[in-house]
C-alpha cells in the first residue's frame, strides 16, 4: 500500500519537473533574443564582433541618441502614432455601431450586411497589396499617412465587427430594450447605454487593431516614399539598408522601436492577451 502511494507521488513529481523545465526553456527561447538585442545596443562597434554574447564591457549609452538622430526616429515615431491613432479613431466607432445594428436591430438585409463582412475575415490582406496600391494611386493618396489610416481601418473592419458582435451578443438583450422603452433613440441607446458596457470589448479591439497598425510594414513600404512620412517599420528597414555596417546603432534603433509596445504590453497584459487572441483568452 505504502509503495503505491510513493509510486503515485513520484509519477506526479516527474511531469511537474518536466513542466517547469519546459517552461524555463520556452521563456529563455522567447526572451533571450530580446535581451541579446538590448545588450548589443550598448556595445561598441568593435566589441560587437569580438564579444558576441557577453555583457557589454563599457556600455555605450550614446548609441541611443546617435541612432535616434541618424535614423530620424522622432518623426517616424510621430508618423506611427498618427497612423495608429487615426486607424483607431475610425475603426472603433465604425465597427461598434455596425455591430450594434447587426446584433440588436431587426432591419431587412442585415444578414446580407453581416455575411459580406464575414467574407472579409477570410481574406488575408497582403494578397491584395498591389491591387490596393493601385486604388490608392488612383485616389491620389500615394505617399500620405491618410492612405495608411484608410487601408488599415478597412482591413480591420471585418474582424473587429465580428468581435464586437460577439461582445454585444454576450450582453443581456433586456438592457437595450429597457433603454428603448425609456424613450432612447436607436443612436442614444447605442451611445449612452450599450457603448459604455462594451468598454472591455473596445479595449481588446483597440489592442488588436492598434498593434497591427503600429507594426504593419508591407503596405506602408509600398505607399510611403518620403522618408519624413515613414512609419517605424519602414524606417527601420531603410535604416538597415543605409547604415548596414553600424550594428550597435542598428540594435539601439531596434531596441527603441520595440520599447513602447513592450512597455504597454507589460502594463496591460490582460488586455493584450485578450485583444490579440480575439477574445478567445479572457486575460
Amino acid at each position: 500500500m505504502s509503495t503505491m502511494v510513493t509510486e503515485g507521488r513520484r509519477s506526479s513529481i516527474a511531469p511537474r519537473v518536466a513542466s517547469y523545465l519546459l517552461m524555463a526553456i520556452m521563456a529563455v527561447l522567447a526572451l533571450y533574443p530580446l535581451v541579446w538585442m538590448a545588450l548589443g545596443s550598448l556595445k561598441s562597434g568593435g566589441e560587437f564582433y569580438t564579444n558576441i554574447w557577453g555583457l557589454p564591457a563599457d556600455p555605450q549609452w550614446r548609441n541611443f541618441p546617435d541612432a535616434w538622430v541618424r535614423g530620424g526616429l522622432g518623426i517616424k515615431f510621430l508618423n506611427s502614432a498618427i497612423v495608429t491613432f487615426g486607424t483607431l479613431a475610425i475603426t472603433l466607432p465604425v465597427t461598434s455601431i455596425a455591430a450594434y445594428a447587426i446584433t440588436s436591430m431587426d432591419f431587412r438585409g442585415r444578414s446580407l450586411a453581416y455575411g459580406a463582412l464575414l467574407l472579409g475575415i477570410m481574406i488575408p490582406f497582403g494578397v491584395t497589396a498591389i491591387p490596393v496600391f493601385s486604388v490608392i494611386a488612383q485616389l491620389g493618396l500615394l505617399n500620405t499617412r491618410l492612405a495608411l489610416v484608410l487601408v488599415y481601418s478597412a482591413q480591420a473592419v471585418a474582424f473587429s465587427t465580428f468581435l464586437m458582435c460577439a461582445f454585444f451578443q454576450s450582453l443581456p438583450a433586456e438592457i437595450e430594450e429597457a433603454a428603448r422603452l425609456e424613450g432612447c433613440t436607436r443612436f442614444s441607446a447605442f451611445w449612452r447605454v450599450m457603448l459604455p458596457l462594451a468598454r472591455p470589448g473596445l479595449a481588446a479591439q483597440a489592442v488588436f487593431v492598434g498593434t497591427t497598425a503600429w507594426n504593419e510594414y508591407f503596405l506602408a513600404s509600398l505607399i510611403i516614399r518620403d522618408p519624413a512620412r515613414e512609419t517605424i517599420p519602414v524606417g527601420l528597414v531603410s535604416f538597415t539598408g543605409r547604415y548596414a555596417t553600424d550594428y550597435p546603432a542598428l540594435f539601439a534603433a531596434l531596441t527603441m522601436a520595440t520599447l513602447p509596445l513592450l512597455a504597454l504590453y507589460l502594463l496591460a497584459q490582460k488586455q493584450f492577451v485578450a485583444g490579440l487572441t480575439g477574445g478567445a483568452v479572457k486575460g
Binding site: 459580406a116 463582412l117 478597412a154
Partner: peptide, 13 residues
C-alpha cells in the same frame, strides 16, 4: 449604422 463599415470594406478590399 452599417454603411461606414461596409463602405470602407467595399472601397479598400
Amino acid at each position: 449604422f452599417v454603411a461606414p463599415a461596409l463602405l470602407l470594406f467595399l472601397l479598400f478590399v
